[in-house]
Amino acid sequence: MKEGIHPEYNEITVKLSDGTEFKTRSTMDPEDGVYRSEVDSKNHPFYTGNMNYQKKAGRIDRFKKRYGNSDD
C-alpha cells in the first residue's frame, strides 16, 4: 500500500439508542471514541412496522381542500 494516503483505522465503540454497545473498527474519529446512534433497527419505523400514515393523509386532505378535488 502507498504510504500516507490512507485514513487512520481505529477501534471505536458504537452505542445504540437502547444502550447496547459494541466495539468495531472504523475510519471515523469521534472525539471521545464513542459513536452514539440516534436511529437503529430497534427504533426506526421501517424495521418496527410502526409507520405513521396519519400525517400523510392529513396533507392530502389539506391539498384537496385547498385546490379542490380533481376527481370530477
Rank of each mutant, 00 (worst) to 15 (best):
F22P: 05
M28V: 03
S70F: 15
S37H: 06
D18T: 09
S41M: 12
K23F: 13
N69E: 03
M28I: 05
K15E: 15
K65E: 13
E8D: 11
E3C: 13
R66W: 05
K56P: 09
I12T: 12
D29H: 14
A57V: 10
T48M: 06
G19C: 04
Q54S: 07
D72Q: 05
R59I: 03
K2L: 04
S41G: 12
S41A: 15
G49W: 00
D72K: 07
D18W: 04
D40H: 01
D18S: 06
S26F: 00
V34Q: 04
D72H: 02
S41I: 10
K23D: 11
L16D: 02
Y47R: 10
S41R: 14
G49N: 01
E31F: 13
Q54H: 04
G68P: 12
I5R: 08
L16S: 03
E31H: 07
N69D: 13
S17C: 04
S37V: 09
D29F: 07
S26W: 05
I12S: 06
N10P: 05
Q54N: 07
R62K: 14
D61Q: 15
G4N: 11
K23C: 08
G49K: 00
N50Q: 14
S70N: 12
G33I: 05
S41F: 15
M1Q: 08
T24R: 04
F46R: 14
E11N: 10
A57C: 11
K64S: 14
H44R: 00
M51P: 01
Y53R: 15
E3Q: 14
H6M: 10
G4C: 09
G58E: 14
V39E: 15
L16T: 02
T24L: 05
E21R: 04
K2A: 09
I60G: 02
D40M: 00
K42W: 08
K42E: 12
D71Y: 09
G4R: 06
K15M: 12
S17K: 07
K55T: 06
T48R: 01
N10D: 05
E8G: 13
N69I: 00
K64F: 05
K56H: 12
F63G: 10
I5M: 14
P7F: 06
Y9A: 00
N69H: 01
N52V: 08
F63H: 12
M1I: 01
R66N: 07
R59Q: 08
Q54E: 04
G49R: 00
K2M: 03
E8S: 11
M28S: 04
G68N: 08
T24S: 03
H44F: 01
Y9F: 02
D32C: 11
E38A: 04
K23G: 11
P30M: 05
E3I: 13
H44P: 00
